[in-house]
């Protein structure tokens, strides 16, 4: 059973004493990519993967439906506002059924696999692959254009957030741990976002962070989270250039 395996994994790492988090770069953009200077930039937002729960004393996540619901709503609102401020046209990808639904599910899964690879081999500088030392060339393939036609968009935005707020017990354990000289992190706050060119399938921008700020359960916190997720989001051509990458050593 899954819970059984989870339990063994928890026990294997005894009381979760970890070393300092590794340094990573927070984002990366395809070289020279900008949105066209004029005309609409139509961005399709794929249903964000949002999970919010509570972290037990031992580190298990207890999913929380209410928190997840509010986070989902708050993040969607904040995203609308953030993109409106950039004069981009944001549309939610409609729910799809049948073969289209399967196609969408396939591309979500592919996006996840590619993103995991980018996070691993691009954002963590030491892990860069020999052929991708300086390049940023990842793609989901031109077949993704079909999703652009279905949803009516030029770019696809994927978002993922996973939060587990430390329970009272976890925080207490953290305090006791400090007294006894053990480091016990409280809370998990991971997020990433990626933008795909729906004409070519190329991944043009990615932003990932394993220690994000902003309490997504609150409107204000979600706004802060979205601002962080969209840090270094591509600009329109001719806009004030922004740094391609930014180090976010925690």
């Amino acid at each position: 059973m899954m819970v059984g395996r989870m339990l063994l994994a928890l026990v294997a790492c005894a009381c979760v004493v970890t070393g300092p988090a590794q340094a990573q770069e927070a984002s990366a953009t395809k070289q020279g990519f900008t949105f066209p200077k004029d005309g609409p930039v139509r961005i399709l937002v794929f249903r964000p993967e949002v999970r919010v729960g509570e972290q037990s004393t031992a580190g298990m996540n207890q999913p929380n439906a209410d928190w997840t619901d509010s986070a989902r709503r708050n993040i969607a609102d904040a995203l609308d506002k953030a993109q409106a401020a950039r004069a981009n046209d944001v549309q939610a990808m409609p729910e799809l059924e049948g073969d289209d639904g399967k196609l969408l599910a396939d591309y979500r899964a592919l996006f996840r696999a590619v993103t995991d690879s980018v996070v691993q081999h691009k954002l963590f500088v030491g892990n860069r692959l020999p052929t991708k030392k300086t390049e940023f060339n990842w793609t989901l393939g031109p077949g993704v254009a079909r999703l652009g036609q279905i949803g009516g968009g030029d770019y696809g935005l994927f978002l993922f957030t996973n939060d587990s707020y430390g329970s009272a017990g976890r925080k207490a354990a953290q305090v006791v741990g400090l007294l006894l000289g053990a480091y016990i992190p409280s809370g998990v706050h991971v997020g990433y976002a990626g933008l795909v060119d729906l004409k070519t399938g190329e991944l043009v921008w990615i932003n990932a962070d394993v220690a994000m700020g902003g309490d997504v359960r609150e409107v204000e916190g979600a706004t802060k989270r979205v601002t962080q997720l969209l840090e270094d989001f591509p600009q329109r051509e001719g806009a004030v250039p922004v740094a391609v990458t930014k180090t976010a050593a925690k």
Binding site: C15, T57, M60, G169
Partner: peptide, 21 residues
């Protein structure tokens, strides 16, 4: 049973976390 399993796992691992001190 899934719920009972989850609760049991949470309660027991939590107690174990304290015991690890």
């Amino acid at each position: 049973h899934s719920l009972k399993n989850f609760r049991d796992a949470r309660a027991k691992t939590d107690a174990m976390a304290w015991l690890s001190f």
